[in-house]
Design a protein around this nucleic acid. Sequence first.
DNA 1: TGTATGATGAACT
DNA 2: GTTCATCATACAT
Length: 205
Amino acid sequence: MSSSVVGFPPGFFTRGALAVAQDLLGCMLVRRMPAGSGLPAGSVLTGVIAETEAYLPDDPACHAHRGRTARNAAMFLSGGHAYVYFIYGMHFCVNVVTGPEGQGEAVLLRAVRGAPVAGCVLSGTLVPSESGALTNDLIPDAQTTGPGRLCRVFGIDRALDGADLTDPAGPLYLLPRTGPPPPFSATPRIGIRKNADVPWRFVMG
DNA sequence: TGTATGATGAACT
DNA sequence: GTTCATCATACAT
């Protein structure tokens, strides 16, 4: 046990979408920006996950419910991978796969907060000011609230579909929370018609 | 080959 | 509260 990298406990991402959706609140999403993103290549964006939704295999609202297709193939990878899809002609959404390989369940990341996290070296986000210069200003929460906006700010698109979110050397990865579990509330999920009544959306605070 | 739909966001009233 | 921009995907011809 000599690794200096703080990781998730083994099996964290294969406990099912409902458990993982709650336990991801307070965890950190880390993005290494690629060249051509508007930020210098290698710029790091971070955010504390503040809102999630669970999608289960038996759930009619889940993309995997009607079987595996080219679009949702990444959802059938093992837990800890990314499932990124394009919707409404203009938005990307990013999910964390939460089942064993072949299961088809995931957690949609709906919002992150730019608040610093004590004890973590990645304490802020780099954003270009209006003049184009980089600052250490936190991104306003309004810009990272909503799955489409979150993906736009973090530069997430289909290129990250299937990415390993547990690899700290990768372009997009997760870090465990360092403090106690944050309080949260459960509400119905947003913007779906099928199985719209179940309280599988989890909001920190 | 056609077409309905959608895990959204912005701009309205 | 409502409308709508806009298009990849899935599925029905």
